[in-house]
Amino acid sequence: MGNTEPRRHFFDLKIPLGSLLGFYGLLLLVYGIFGPSDIYDKSAHLDVNAIWGVLMIVLSSAFLLSAYRGRKAKK
């Protein structure tokens, strides 16, 4: 940061955030694939649970990966 003063950081927020989104992603993906399919009549026949599940897993991986790299860089 070009800052001479050392800063004390809290734990990395990306870890709880990534974990929560990952949990949601898996839950929605599994429910979207194995759950009832008639509930998608209302959502214009899109299996949004599976779609959103995949999206959230991708997002979660990005957060967790970046947290992991940050930690490695520190060491």
């Binding site: 949601y24 839950l27 929605l28 429910y31 979207g32 759950g35 509930i39 998608y40 209302k42 959502s43 214009a44 949004v48 649970n49 959103w52």
Partner: peptide, 11 residues
């Protein structure tokens, strides 16, 4: 209520 199935609805 009209467009979201359970799962994404909870979200």
């Amino acid at each position: 209520a009209h467009y979201l199935p359970n799962g994404i609805l909870g979200l």
